[in-house]
Nucleic acid binder design. Structure first.
Lengths: 231, 231
DNA sequence: CTTTTATGGTACTGCCAAGTACCATTTCCG
DNA sequence: CGGAAATGGTACTTGGCAGTACCATAAAAG
């Protein structure tokens, strides 16, 4: 063992081929990246590993191998693994959570708004990306409650508030009759998730087809609207 | 380093206090456990660590420290870590999943059956135990899809089937009008989970009070029954 | 009481990953 | 062009954990 037994001695690798002053004719040599580019590359690699490839917690080695650069980059840029995961979650959140609320405002026709909302939710949540993200945040919520809070506020919490506002407006117009719009919003989003999310997360069922999605959200909207109709 | 440098030499610990023939007067000496008792103790320790203390993946050392016994016990009993996790999931499933379906049959009054079902679901799923179990299976589903399948079949899948049967019976009596009872069952369970499960899992909200639970499932049952009523 | 068997305890090995140090090289700036 | 600062690459250290080996002891068998 003991590898080498030279604690702080000279170079371990003596200048690998230094042919003069860097051959400018050798074209495809990947240039060194700038600060911001390196940050982007690292986050991209971490995202691919953790979300798209469903790796629970990617190792720094794996991230570096994919992104290039060195461990030093991670420490100067993010301050360590925890910092990287903070940045990673922020990145993912910022990327896919806004898609939840796109193109919805509280003046739309209620059925149209609910259908639109449901479609967004299903597409985001049931995708590989969405499931990976859920797994990520479920894990992190153990070690870093603040991270979970931030995530919730930016995504699900915001969506719930938006939906509650929509319901509130509809109630103001007399289209629905519910006691608590926030509670009703929770019921609706839950119904949209239904049992499908669990089945997807546990890999019980393959990705949903367009037709399946439309059938499901159509049924959910029908039940909900009929259920909250004034009588 | 190198600790000792005696690969296969004599004893590392020379007979710690052997006072004659074991003093029978020293009372609280924990006796050695039998096979089945050891198994139980190991599973119990693993359960406490993984579910109740929310440790994602307890180490064998941690399990041993809590349960007593030796690493050897785990290998002779479960064949290794994976075997232990198999047994752990089976143990937990067998313990809390039956509570999901207790005291429900398809001849009950529909509202009563739904309310009962919802109450069971909320109590099981929102408890610390339930959340810990969810986390466990979500993790394992990555490395062992078959484990996830087994779990689903014993718990959520069974519940869904039961609920679908109940709805089918009600439809036969003309109490409700839905196209697909299985889909409607998914909608109902989703509505019961609502947004509460996510809030609980991410520790956004403290455990629910009895009143909150009753209010929530009351609202969900009302919306659902009204939504599927024949018209 | 003696022999056999199985269990408890612990040391040890090997592996993997986080974090640190350092050199070589590249880029930036005067 | 020439030096300073930053970056890429790699080795190294440390720590945790799964898995294995082995001894001593407790229970069981004779």
């Amino acid at each position: 063992m003991q590898h080498d037994k030279r604690p702080n001695a000279g170079p371990r690798r003596q200048a690998p081929e230094r042919a003069g002053s860097t051959p400018a004719s050798a074209a495809p040599k990947p240039r060194r990246l700038k600060h911001s580019d390196r940050r982007t590359a690292l986050l991209q690699a971490a995202k691919e590993l953790s979300v798209e490839q469903n790796v629970t917690i990617p190792s720094l080695d794996a991230i570096i191998k994919r992104a290039g650069g060195s461990r030093r980059s991670i420490y100067t840029e993010f301050g360590g693994k925890e910092g990287l995961r903070d940045a990673l979650l922020a990145e993912i959140s910022g990327e896919i959570l806004p898609a939840l609320h796109e193109g919805i405002d509280r003046n739309m026709d209620l059925r149209a708004a609910l259908t639109h909302f449901a479609r967004r939710l299903v597409c985001v949540l049931m995708s590989e990306h969405g499931i990976g993200m859920s797994r990520l945040i479920m894990q992190d919520s153990l070690t870093s409650p603040s991270r979970a809070r931030t995530f919730y506020a930016k995504g699900p919490g915001k969506g719930m508030k938006l939906l509650a506002d929509i319901l509130e407006a509809a109630r103001g117009r007399g289209e629905i009759a519910v006691r608590d719009c926030a509670s009703a919003a929770g019921c609706f989003t839950g119904m949209v998730r239904g049992n499908l999310y669990l089945e997807r997360a546990l890999r019980i069922r393959p990705p949903l087809s367009e037709a399946e999605i439309e059938a499901h959200i159509g049924a959910a909207v029908d039940i909900f609207l009929e259920g909250v109709k004034p009588r």
